[in-house]
Design a protein around this nucleic acid. Structure first.
Lengths: 191, 191
DNA sequence: GACGGGATGTCAGCGACTGACATGACTGTA
DNA sequence: TACAGTCATGTCAGTCGCTGACATCCCGTC
């Protein structure tokens, strides 16, 4: 598996994040990234489809976890409950450090181009969740709406997790769960 | 204001949509668009920042309408109620034909690159709505969550409006309102 | 009819991205 | 030990998105 210097992909992702934070996204050339990682520009594009994708290495893992969680959920439960639990479980399995997540998010929010890609990933996650819900018998229009809303809450919960001051109190699944609960309150007829 | 052939911007937007539908986004060159519109490639980039933006000419108008509606809303009412009414009003003022909206959406969903831009516009709208809510005294975290959720419902409502078969029954504000109502049901504690 | 300003044209150039082909490194096998 | 096959990487040439600098043209104004 490993030849030459191993893990070119990982080195490229690391070099890219560093450079995006040091100089900014626009000011960083793919050639810069490749050179810092010790490979050629061409090699970069063999590992990542474009200059943005390099910050989204593990976005597929979250989606897989969420879909699996929906599929394996016991029958019964409202769509929002099922998906909510799946998103909390996905957050649990993510296993990313707040430090790294903060740096990554910092780079992403600094440039619209990267934000676009982040939004696309969330949209893809929403689409996959919607499909998984439909396979459980949820009607398509309902599934799409629930997925959209719940993934939105997931995203907000993730950001709130990054904002917590005290490291000891920061728990991603808790934060997602709390945000989903708040969603229910805000949407409640009385609110 | 108008010299040479008037409305180069509008001609460019029209030519771009046509070509994206005829050949696809990737297969269309900015030079192609410019030639069909009777201008130079350079002129294209004076009117639009990039090849995607050309499909999002009036996205600012919706945002302005929504923000204005939030700002002018009478005091009282939950954040979700205020924003929901503002989004319905925004939909009312949009004034786009379903035919044109369908073609545009068809082009957008055909290519992830365009979908990214659509998502960014919605995110920007959400951010603006959140800010407007905060100026009404809504706490920042709540405002962000409500804005995210409500704009998501708006987007789903818009798509549903496009899907309605009978032209006579298709009303955008109604569709947005119905989707918001469904959101409340789905999120209600009992559901 | 000279003047000024805004929209357009022209041109040169950088950087993102791709296809085609060559080369290197490591594995399995005789 | 030699040889062949495979897969990641390197090399090279080319297209296209996008930008800055400068020239030009059309129009209203004085």
């Amino acid at each position: 598996m490993a030849r030459w210097e191993p893990d070119a992909r990982g080195r490229l992702a690391k070099a890219a994040l560093e450079l995006y934070l040091e100089r900014g996204f626009e000011e960083t050339t793919v050639l810069d990234i490749a050179e810092r990682a010790g490979v050629t520009e061409r090699t970069f594009f063999r590992h990542f489809t474009d200059k943005r994708e390099v910050l989204f290495l593990n976005s597929g893992a979250l989606q897989d976890a969420v879909v699996a969680s929906i599929t394996e959920a016991p029958p019964g439960g409202s769509p929002l409950e099922v998906l909510g639990a799946a998103l909390i479980e996905g957050g649990r399995q993510l296993g990313v450090s707040r430090e790294h997540a903060r740096l990554r998010m910092s780079a992403i929010t600094r440039h619209p181009s990267l934000l676009e890609r982040e939004l696309l990933k969330l949209s893809t996650l929403s689409g996959a969740a919607s499909t998984a819900l439909q396979e459980r018998g949820v009607a398509a229009p309902t599934a799409r709406l629930v997925a959209d809303i719940a993934v939105g809450a997931f995203s907000v919960g993730f950001e709130r997790w990054l904002d917590v001051e005290d490291d000891a109190e920061a728990d991603l699944p808790d934060s997602i769960g709390a945000t989903l609960a708040e969603l229910r309150e805000l949407a409640a007829p009385g609110a």
